[in-house]
Design a protein around this nucleic acid. Structure first.
Lengths: 195, 195
DNA sequence: ATATAATTAGAACGAACGTTCAATTTAAGA
DNA sequence: TCTTAAATTGAACGTTCGTTCTAATTATAT
């Protein structure tokens, strides 16, 4: 059962890969279905065979991207000996795996009044994922007596916006050269919350 | 001299005001010249009488916006008694006057390969302005012995990205409710750089 | 009053967009 | 081998876009 008689799944995958690259490079609006068609080698009609429309395709990619980011993080979550170390690890994970360019297209789509409310809602829900990961680290640090008792929600937003802001720099600089900056941000943040 | 026989300057001003609002609300690509025409009450042809094209119009608005932001800051720059106070003042200035929504359109335009290189260059130059303002505060703090001697360039980028990241929140929350968050960010930052 | 130049409008352009659809090819099950 | 449904194509549709152009209107200078 569930054995496909045909294998158009590879085609679907190729379309998604090319679409991911194009959306990341040119943003949502500026990437046309024709672009995706040309890049993937499949006809426009075939893209609509696999995906309901351009909007749904993008949302799917954004969700998949965020999910992969989270899974990758959970896989190394227990490599760290303390909450402070984990925060440094998170900074590196954000720097190297948070797909800023693609996710920027999400803002574009969400701020367009003609986008379907459903898609907008789904995109906003994505932002919850990284915030949850940050919060978990802070809670752990407090519970284990490593961090002060403080306003966890506020701290979560603060480290989240800082890392998010730093991520914008990946548009113009390569990740490796940004490592010291990300680490410095974490160390400054820790100075304020560590006991 | 310089006395205009006609007064189409008011028309130009009205077009710019409406264009500013639309670009802020819907971004660059999603704002059409027709939108601006309808909102301003002037014909499409008339818009092209005043502005070479849509791209140039946007760049002009972005430049004007950033220039106003800087002038407003310089006007209150000397209201503060020390560098730390000035940093808090800057955070509030950013929160209330940095036109995040419009400037986001700049990223959109800059990341589009079909945009004229000249426009892209002009937009990148805008980012230099706030960074210069941050740096000036940090230098003052160091020179007056209020802050430690440290890597000024690094600090500049760090406070810049943090405030920039926080600004993204203005998309979903009103500025007033964000005041405590901005202030907390500054106080945490100061903890690390104050003597 | 007339000439002139600045100002404004609105129709028209070709190109590009997202989407649909009928037609064709492909591969599996009987 | 024949049938059937999946897979894929490419042309076509109706819009919308940024831009151009011509024509009309307006205000000023003479």
């Amino acid at each position: 059962m569930n054995k496909r008689r045909y294998n158009s799944e590879t085609a679907k995958q190729e379309i998604m890969e090319k679409a991911f690259l194009l959306f990341s490079q040119k943003g949502y609006t500026q990437t046309s279905v024709s672009d995706i068609s040309k890049a993937s080698g499949y006809s426009k009609g075939h893209i609509y065979y696999h995906f309901e429309n351009k909007e749904k395709l993008f949302v799917l990619l954004a969700q998949q991207t965020m999910k992969e980011w989270y899974i990758k993080w959970m896989n190394k979550d227990n490599e760290f000996t303390c909450a402070a170390e984990k925060l440094y690890g998170m900074a590196m994970h954000v720097l190297y795996h948070y797909q800023t360019p693609l996710l920027k297209g999400g803002q574009e789509l969400a701020s367009n009044p003609e986008s379907s409310p459903e898609s907008v809602k789904q995109l906003y829900e994505l932002a919850v994922i990284p915030m949850g990961a940050y919060r978990a680290i802070l809670v752990q640090g407090i519970e284990e007596g490593e961090f002060k008792k403080g306003n966890v929600e506020e701290w979560t937003v603060l480290i989240g916006t800082w890392l998010g802001g730093l991520c914008q720099l990946t548009n113009t600089q390569d990740p490796y050269s940004l490592e010291p900056l990300f680490k410095k941000a974490v160390s400054m943040f820790l100075e304020s919350i560590q006991k």
